[in-house]
Nucleic acid binder design. Sequence first.
DNA 1: AAATTGCCCAACCGCCACATC
DNA 2: AGATGTGGCGGTTGGGCAATT
Length: 260
Amino acid sequence: MVRSPFFDKNGLKKGAWSPEEDYKLRTYIVRYGHWNWRELPKFAGLQRCGKSCRLRWMNYLRPGVKHGKYSKEEEDLIIKLHNQLGNKWSRIAAELPGRTDNEIKNHWHTHLKKRSKESQRESGLKEKYSIEQSSETSQLNGDLKVESFVPNTPSHAILESFPLSPAPSSSEISHWTSDSNLATLSSTSTSSDWIAAEDSLPSFETFENTSEDFWTQPFVADQDGYKFPMLDEGLISSFLTSYEDSIDLFYKVMQELPGN
DNA sequence: AAATTGCCCAACCGCCACATC
DNA sequence: AGATGTGGCGGTTGGGCAATT
């Protein structure tokens, strides 16, 4: 489905990401943030260009990114927004929590473009029909109002269905309550080990907001060989604890919602 | 069962806007 | 004011996979 991995002339890896690469990128960003995409791969131990890392993070690894089936409401909203904004995928994505511009763009081209054309044709036919009808009926009975075609749902209806967005899905969160299994990984670990370890990682956002001068600190290397700015240990552990607490709370709330 | 076709989506590429020097 | 660096956006592509022949 994706390009097979290969190395370009500059020695940079291209193509599909391995679980190990995902793990390295996610671990690095969760711990230290994306302070500079160009430099980040070097520090994270990745043979990728910064752009590739950014894309992988934004479209796949970032907490809260939803994958899988689109709801009818989401599809209607995409069509509506596309009618209003055109191919402004990032603007459209901003209205759909958890969906990325890339994913929406793909979904549009593979599913919705056809549907949109069909409904436009239908509405065109309806309009034509209604004009013909109304001119006929008005001639006979005077004016008659014809209901216009309204295929869309208001955007707030979608937004209200994601009260805590952007946030990880409940299935992701259930794996994020500790990062204890990270320490057990090594170069001999299997793909599923890397995937399981990845799923245990928390978001960086809270931490990022906590320390404004985070990236002005000098760099050191941690036990995994990652380089990162020097930080107060207490700050890191308080971030992890508070994040885990809020995740637990969120998970509890999700379980108590109707339908769960 | 094998070959062909078309769909789907992750990832790449080029360009642009903005920030910084 | 111009050069350079970086992030972000939108168009396009490669190739796995399921459906069809």
